[in-house]
């Protein structure tokens, strides 16, 4: 077997990530980590630089909101600025 065939075989083995239940595990792990990060906040002594950071879970919830805004705004932006790949070519 030459090397390119070997490579093909090696690449086509079923990987850990190929199995849907493992992807689901990663997905739920992110939820668990987020919950833990909120729980830990109750235990530590916060030292903050701005007043809003005193609020419980500020960084987590701010991030949540910011990313939702980002995705919605990006969808709108795409409507305005998206063009076919050859847009600038026909000159």
């Amino acid at each position: 077997m030459n090397t390119s065939q070997e490579r093909q075989v090696r690449s086509d083995q079923v990987r850990w990530l190929d199995q849907p239940e493992n992807v689901r595990r990663i997905y739920y792990a992110i939820w668990v980590v987020c919950a833990l990060l909120l729980a830990i906040e109750l235990l530590i002594d916060k030292h903050v630089e701005t007043a809003v950071e005193q609020w419980f879970g500020f960084h987590g919830f701010f991030s949540l909101l910011a990313c939702v805004v980002l995705v919605l705004a990006a969808k709108l932006l795409r409507r305005v600025v998206s063009r076919p790949e050859d847009y600038y070519d026909d000159r």
Partner: peptide, 18 residues
């Protein structure tokens, strides 16, 4: 505080993505 704040920012962002 710093580490927790940063991890909250990143993991909640990752959560939205996921």
């Amino acid at each position: 505080s710093h580490v927790l704040a940063q991890l909250q920012l990143l993991m909640f962002s990752a959560l939205v993505f996921a």
